[in-house]
Structures are given as structure tokens and as C-alpha cells.
Simulated assay, not measured.
Amino acid sequence: MPEDGLFGIENLPYGVFSTAERPGERRLGVRHLGRVLDLGAAAAALGAPHAELLTRPSLNPLLAAGPAAWRAVRARVQDWLSGPDAAERLGPFLRPLGAVRMHLPFEVADYVDFYASEHHAAAVGRILRPQAPGLPPNWKHLPIGYHGRAGSVQVSGSPVVRPHGQGRPPRGAETPAFGPTRRLDFEAEVGFVVGVPSAPGTAVPQHAYREHVFGLCLLNDWSARDIQGWEYVPLGPFLGKSFATSLAAWVTPLDALEAARVPPPPRTHPPLPYLDDAGLPPEGLDLRLEVRLNGHLIAEPPFAAMYWTPAQQLAHLTVNGARLRTGDLYASGTVSGPGEDQRGCLLELTEGGRRPLRLGGMERTFLADGDEVSLTAWAPGPGGSRIGLAEVSGRILPAR
């Protein structure tokens, strides 16, 4: 299916753009097929009741307005685009996608990354700790995560500079190595965008997930595996992750993905009550990811295989009373499946660098300078249609 067909009237993701005529002015837009609707200008001209929210330079005011506003705005845009006079009414507010510059769609408040794929966690354990059990003993009882660096989140297409850091001491040496990472990796993930905040000291139960989370987008949690491997004991990822996280420019509302809802995999350990989703509507999602390295398709990770759902992740994130803020971003962790072609990072795809990928005359264990990684995805939509998730991409630049 052509890419435009993945962004029809049942999808309508939101983003922030600027134009060549007014490069310093950021505007809220909705993507429809191969065009961008200037949402603020259309809302003001057509007298939409939520025009004040839609003429801001970021999604945050709309995010904070809550589900009733989200549904009302979405319904109105669908009505505009499907009306018999759509071309005449909306023509002045539509621009070709290629004629605008995209920016981060919202101001990121906090950023948390999870580790929710059993296939990924087990494979990483097998590769890095072959003498130990693949999964740590807590893995089936809680969604493991870490706090990332919100200031390092960047929009798709931004370059990724190879980071410096410490690595394990060379054989026979006592002093750690220092320099540019030699084991730069991508991680194919899905990010979830919080709209409505919560009060400090108040947990958000799973059944309230859709009252707080607006939508989702693809995310690449770039990782320096040698830096990560030296620093992560005992407190977890730090400099090996914090140098860059790439986010798609378009946020797809959860309401566009109703047809993609699926039950998560069977539980092998009974979860504690706040994580027990038995009897609740399913919050797994049938998202089909595709990973390309320099244009070569190298993996097709299935999000439906994720052990912990985004609703469970949100419940765990807040169970200690940590509050949500508008613009919070939390990511799923690497999406991987059981097949060799379903692995969501090079660490898995190359067995820790021991089995190089060979693609069109090039060989890779980890990323080289100049490499470009792009993630795309689609999900089932109503009536047999497909809902596209906008691409997130990034090119590696040499260390500075």
C-alpha cells in the first residue's frame, strides 16, 4: 500500500510544523494522506470551538485538555475532511508534506524507558550473561524501566553524533578505555504520550490509562553498548543511553487504533493486583514494525508480542505516587519477537557482534558513521484498512 494510504481519515496524527516563509513560527498540524492541514488556521477561520487550543506552537495545551477535547477535535477534523466542500473550505490550509519542516510535536516533560519484551530481555540475558538465567527474577513481576533524559529527545531526521564514554578496561589493564563508542546500536520502540496529569501521591490504575494517555509514536532509543556494559552495574543505563533518543514527528491518537487492540501474551506468573489486567479491555496493540538500515529491511518486530502492556507500564510508573505531567513520554523498550527476523536491535540481530549482518555488499555488527536507521510501522484499521505510524529516522555522524 502506498504510504499516503496509511494516513487516511481514520488515522490523522498530530504534529508541529513550520514553513519556509515563516521558519520561526511553529504551527499545529494534522497529517492527511500526503498533506498537512494547518489546524490552528483552519480552526480559527472556521470557528471551531477549540481554536484556542489549536493555535499554540505545541501539542501540550491540547494534550492537557483531556479525552473529551481530544475526541471533539478529532471528530471535527474528520468532518471537515470528509465534507462535500472539503477542497474548497480547506484548500487554503493544506500544504504538501514535503513543503514543511517538522519539529518535536510536544514539549517533553519526563522520559521513562521500559524493558517490556520478554523475547528481547531473554535474548540480551543469553548474549551478555550466558552462565546466568536469561531473565532476572523480578522480570515477570514488574515492568522494569529507567528514567531517561528528556532534553536528549529529538525529532526524526535529526543527526546522531557518535558519543564518547568509558568502556571496560582492555585485557590486562586496570584503567577503563575512553573514546567514541565502537558498539553503537538502535532500539526499535514505541513511545506513549501523556496528556492529562495526575496528582502527586496518587497512583493511576490500569482502567484509567486512556484518561491520561493521548497517543503514541515510534521511537529509537539509541544505545552505546560498550559504554552501557561498563556503567550499568549497579544503577542501570546512564551515558550509554542519554546522548540521543529519536522520536517520530507525528503522534497517532489512541482512538485511531481501536481495531488494533489485542490481548497480551499469556501470563506465566500471576501479577500483583495493580498489574492484573484480567477482566479489563485488552491493551495490547497489533503494531507491525519494520527496521531498515541504509534502506535494507533487516527486521520486522511485532508489538503484539510485548509481555507488559502500556497500561501496565503506566500503572507501575505511578504506583509509588509519582505524578504524571502533560508531555511525559514513556517508551516500551526494544520490540522483539521470537523469530530471527523479528529482533529489534543489532545486539540481538548480530548475537552481540559475533554474527555480522551482510546486506548488499556491506557488513555490520554495530552502526558505522554515515549509517541511517529508519523505523516504520502499521496497524490494522477499521474495515480492513491500515493505520500508519510515522517514520522515525536518524543518521550517524562521527564523534566530535
Rank of each mutant, 00 (worst) to 15 (best):
E3L: 01
D4F: 09
G5S: 10
F17R: 05
R26L: 11
R26C: 04
L37A: 03
L37V: 07
G40K: 02
A48I: 03
A51K: 05
T55F: 03
L63C: 11
L63G: 06
A69G: 08
A72M: 05
V73C: 02
R74M: 05
R76M: 08
V77W: 07
L81K: 10
G83K: 07
P84D: 14
P84M: 06
A86C: 12
L90D: 06
R95N: 04
E107Q: 09
E107C: 02
V108P: 00
Y111W: 04
F114I: 03
S117H: 01
H119R: 03
A121W: 02
V124W: 01
R129I: 02
N138F: 09
H141Y: 14
I144Q: 12
R149F: 01
R149T: 13
Q154E: 06
Q154L: 01
S156P: 03
P159A: 02
R162W: 00
H164Y: 15
G165E: 09
Q166T: 07
P169W: 05
P169H: 07
P176H: 11
G191Q: 09
F192G: 08
F192W: 15
T202N: 07
V204G: 01
Y209L: 09
H212C: 07
F214E: 10
C217S: 15
L218R: 08
Q228Y: 13
G229W: 05
E231S: 11
P234D: 06
P237G: 05
K241Q: 10
S246I: 11
W250F: 13
P253H: 04
A256P: 10
R261W: 04
V262C: 08
P266H: 13
H269E: 15
E283D: 15
G284S: 10
D286N: 07
E290S: 14
G295C: 03
H296W: 12
I298Y: 00
A304F: 00
M306L: 15
Y307I: 07
W308F: 12
T309N: 03
Q312V: 13
Q313T: 08
A315S: 05
T318V: 01
N320S: 14
G321P: 11
G321K: 04
L324I: 00
A331I: 12
G337K: 11
G337M: 09
G337H: 06
P338T: 03
E340T: 11
D341C: 09
L346P: 12
L349M: 08
E351H: 13
R354N: 12
P356C: 10
P356S: 08
P356H: 06
R358N: 11
L359I: 11
T365C: 13
E372D: 06
S374A: 15
W378H: 11
A379S: 12
G384V: 04
G384P: 14
R395M: 05
